[in-house]
Simulated assay, not measured.
Amino acid sequence: MKKHSKQKENYLSKKERVEQLTKILEKGVVDFQYDPEEFKALLRMKALMPNYSFRNLLVAKAQFPDVSFIAPFKRWSELGRKIIKGEQAIRIFAPQFKKVEDSTDKDVYKIIGYVSVPVFDVSQTEGEPLPIDEINLRLEGDCPEAREIIQMVEDVSDCTITYGNTGVANGFYNQVAHSITVSEKLSINHRAKTLVHEFVHSRCHQLGDNSTAMEREVVAEGCAFIVCNYFGLDTSDYSFRYVKGWSQGNADALMQFGTQICDVSSKIIHQFEQWKATKLSPKVEKDEEAA
């Protein structure tokens, strides 16, 4: 009975820590503000880009979750950029117009339909510097906590995990192959965060999942923040910005998905703690034998 009570107490303590981190995440996202220089860089970048409809932005994000600034090949060429070899175009809609023949105004046209046109995200290009290059969107560093988190995901996950060329993304989860690939270019700290993010996708977002792109990304990054911070890796600088971008200014997004974030995070933390206990137990037994 005492053992059961102690386990219950430890569980509640863990639950409270997860809830505390969830509140920190919610407050951090709501309060997150770009610094003035960064905000100016974003405005300058926006001024260079074509103005696409919200519908097209959603279509682009469905194909390319990390999309930020998109433009056609011609516009990137004008900015001194070229498309990186091997990158695939993102398809969006462009209206088709037809001149109104019976109009008294010679320049009257009507939309008769839409066609698919190719565009590319800024991360799919290379060349002349852009305002966005002034903004650091990376977690730097190599700490023991990050390396331990990487080891825990690798041992606990049933996915095939590889590190290599991920194109423009930091990482991705392949639902069909049930595999995770993380960019080899990332620092160890960023690699750990990305690995947890994709691990959450592998646990929650299987084929046939009806969740929206916003829900999937907010939940994955929210869980990554909680799990990483629970085990000593602070990802707030990156995670607050990431969730803020995906929630599109919707202050209720985190509240809406908060329960799922808490539940998934708690389960992953429990798995990781079991892993740590298993790893420590042989050493404890050996020490006892030596004594």
Rank of each mutant, 00 (worst) to 15 (best):
N10P: 00
N10R: 13
Y11V: 13
L12M: 15
K14W: 03
K14H: 09
K15R: 10
K15L: 15
E19F: 13
Q20F: 12
L21W: 00
K23L: 14
K23V: 12
I24P: 00
K27A: 07
V29R: 12
V30E: 11
D35R: 09
F39I: 05
L42W: 09
L42Y: 10
L43R: 11
L48H: 07
P50G: 05
N56H: 04
N56R: 00
L58G: 00
A62G: 08
F69H: 06
W76P: 02
G80V: 04
G80N: 02
K82A: 06
I83M: 03
I83Q: 02
G86K: 08
Q88P: 00
I90T: 01
F93N: 07
K98S: 07
S103L: 11
V108E: 15
Y109W: 15
I112L: 05
F120L: 11
V122F: 08
S123L: 12
Q124V: 09
P131I: 14
N136T: 14
G141I: 08
C143L: 06
R147N: 15
E148T: 09
Q151R: 14
D158N: 06
T160L: 11
N165C: 01
V168D: 06
G171P: 09
L186D: 02
I188C: 00
R191D: 00
K193N: 07
L195R: 01
H197S: 03
H201E: 01
H205M: 03
Q206K: 14
D209P: 04
S211R: 10
G222P: 01
C228T: 05
N229R: 12
G232N: 11
D237P: 01
Y238A: 13
Y238N: 06
V243P: 04
G245T: 05
Q248L: 14
G249D: 10
A251C: 09
D252E: 14
G258N: 14
I261Q: 08
K267T: 07
I268P: 03
I269L: 07
Q271E: 15
E273H: 03
E273N: 13
Q274C: 04
W275D: 13
W275P: 02
K283G: 00
V284H: 02
V284N: 01
E288V: 03
E288T: 00
E289R: 10
